[in-house]
């Protein structure tokens, strides 16, 4: 059953999955990090409280987060076609992945940033730091270990979503698992895909934890 062709198919699937995951994570952070910071800064306990902005941004984030990914995947197909030119394949899947993951990332970033000691932020304000300086030089560097752990969680979540996109021909390991395991009842192939996905999740999470621990200067 594991012919040459099967191995190369798996290799391609693995690469596609990594590609979707990495590209989507990076793009989700490009959007989610600033959005998360806006949520923190405009919070009523934040350094620039702004209930209006906070409520609007917060609602959009909540709205997107409350749509199950599998439905979002189908619902945003027109957007996907508009941006990627197609709705099939791994590049197309990046679009719904980013739309689903960015709000999730924003909330992760928000919670990491809220862990930063209020006193340290006040101290930097007392030294004349601007809001942007507080965000870039205090909140992000001080929250770095927590942000990295969060990034690992976000990556593994996106990995899981990317596998789900196999249902609509999204490419990658999930696609193979569905095509062979579900449509052709080749359970063994499906199992192998699941094992690879599990391993990937473990590896990403562990790498994240190690980097976070290495860069955290609070210990020792």
């Amino acid at each position: 059953m594991f012919s040459e062709g099967m191995f190369s198919l798996m290799g391609t699937g693995l690469l596609e999955t990594l590609y979707m995951t990495v590209v989507s994570t990076v793009m989700a952070y490009l959007i989610g990090l600033p959005v998360g910071m806006i949520l923190v800064v405009t919070d009523k306990e934040g350094i620039r409280p702004n209930p209006t902005i906070n409520r609007i941004v917060g609602s959009i984030v909540n709205l997107l987060r409350s749509v199950p990914f599998i439905i979002l995947l189908v619902a945003v197909m027109p957007v996907t076609r508009f941006i990627a030119g197609t709705t099939i394949g791994s590049t197309a899947t990046v679009v719904p992945l980013v739309i689903a993951a960015a709000p999730f990332v924003a909330r992760m970033v928000e919670s990491s940033a809220k862990e930063v000691d209020r006193g340290v932020i006040e101290a930097s304000l007392s030294m004349g730091a601007s809001t942007l300086e507080v965000v870039l030089k205090v909140i992000i560097p001080e929250a770095k270990p927590s942000l990295i752990v969060g990034a690992a969680i976000a990556t593994t979540t996106i990995l899981g979503y990317s596998a789900m996109s196999g249902v609509v021909g999204g490419g990658g390991l999930g696609d193979i698992a569905i095509r062979y395991g579900y449509h052709r009842s080749q359970t063994d192939i499906m199992l192998v895909m699941v094992v690879i996905l599990v391993l990937l999740v473990q590896i990403f999470q562990e790498i994240g934890n190690i980097i976070a621990r290495k860069c955290d200067k609070r210990i020792r």
Binding site: D117, G119, V120, E122, P141, E142, C215, K217
Partner: peptide, 10 residues
């Protein structure tokens, strides 16, 4: 400050 408020990662 009482709690020093140093940047812990610096």
């Amino acid at each position: 400050f009482q709690s020093f408020n140093l940047l812990m990662q610096r």
